[in-house]
């Protein structure tokens, strides 16, 4: 990170795009912070020139002094705006997968390990977020970014800037982290029936199999067979429970890529995504079959994640 060639150091893109993406914490120092006068700063220069003219025309020394004082304030403003950012430690945080179309949240941890308060910080990714940091304070900024396509979406250049103290200068630091969010396909907007599973006599399986090993009780859900209700418990007034047997497989559902024939690739994935979510919600055991990829039957958050990841990265 520290071995930048001279050419690299003067590349203009460094001004706005920052350096190579980093995994480590970034310490804001003279190599990372850029300062330029803002529009207000430029008008302040005009003000100084006007005052200088007044002082000159009237040969008024106090007016001269006021002019010089403001000019010095302007000049010292550079140091102060540097101070507004210098020493901050920025670390990348985590980001949770989202569905395409949702907004991704990138977390950035900003640490102020110095005794200097930072009363005005602006973090800019897609929207601007403003925050302040007290001495030795740490904060986590949540930056939102729109997502459009499934797959890995990298976090762009985050710009941390400050106009403190006088707003005459803007100090900014472009930050790039190895930070990406996994974007799942957008679930198909309408509810669609589950695809027919080949030779699917799943209903039969449910009744015939798995009645031997008692396994536990589950709170009664509508649709459970009356035969399975644990009447004893009901008699004791403990509520309705249905008995579960260990061999029970529940509903099995195989979701095929081919099941949505006639749709384009993205639409198919979108439909599959919807099915996966619905199956999980319905408590079905489901598996996923994509060309060249197969995820076995399963249920639960881990399984769901696995399936969605496969869809996102297909």
């Amino acid at each position: 990170m520290n071995t930048l060639s001279l050419k690299d150091r003067f590349r203009l893109s460094r001004f706005f795009a920052g350096e190579k993406p980093s995994d480590e914490a970034i310490l804001l120092n003279q190599r990372r912070i850029f300062i330029l006068p803002s529009k207000r700063g430029l008008s302040f220069v005009v003000l100084i020139l006007l005052l200088l003219l007044i002082a000159f025309v009237y040969n008024n020394n106090l007016a001269y002094f006021l002019t010089f004082l403001l000019a010095s304030v302007f000049f010292i403003g550079i140091l102060h705006s540097y101070k507004a950012l210098a020493g901050l430690l920025i670390r990348k945080g985590q980001c949770k997968p989202v569905f395409a179309g949702e907004r991704a949240v990138f977390q950035i941890h900003i640490d102020n390990p110095t005794p200097v308060p930072r009363p005005s910080l602006e973090i800019d990714l897609y929207d601007k977020t403003q925050t302040t940091l007290e001495p030795y304070e740490k904060k986590t900024a949540r930056l939102y970014a729109p997502t459009e396509h499934r797959g890995h979406q990298t976090c762009g250049t985050i710009t941390l800037s400050s106009g403190y103290p006088l707003g005459l200068f803007r100090a900014w630091s472009p930050l790039r982290f190895n930070l990406s969010v996994l974007v799942y396909p957008k679930p198909w907007p309408q509810e669609i029936p589950f695809p027919e599973t080949g030779g699917g006599s799943s209903d039969q399986g449910k009744t015939e199999k798995g009645t031997d090993d008692f396994y536990g009780l589950q709170e009664y859900q509508r649709g459970d067979s009356i035969k399975r209700i644990h009447w004893k418990a009901y008699a004791k007034g403990q509520g309705l429970f249905s008995k579960q047997y260990s061999g029970e497989q529940g509903d099995e559902l195989w979701l095929h890529y081919e099941a949505s024939a006639g749709y384009g690739n993205e639409e198919r994935l979108s439909r599959l995504c919807r099915w996966v979510l619905d199956a999980e919600k319905a408590g079905l055991r489901y598996g996923l079959k994509l060309p060249g990829q197969k995820i076995g039957l399963g249920i639960g958050p881990a399984h769901l994640t696995q399936c969605l990841e496969a869809l996102a990265l297909f």
Partner: peptide, 11 residues
Amino acid sequence: LGTLVAINSRR
């Protein structure tokens, strides 16, 4: 100048 600082400070 204090006014300018106050404008630019979120505290």
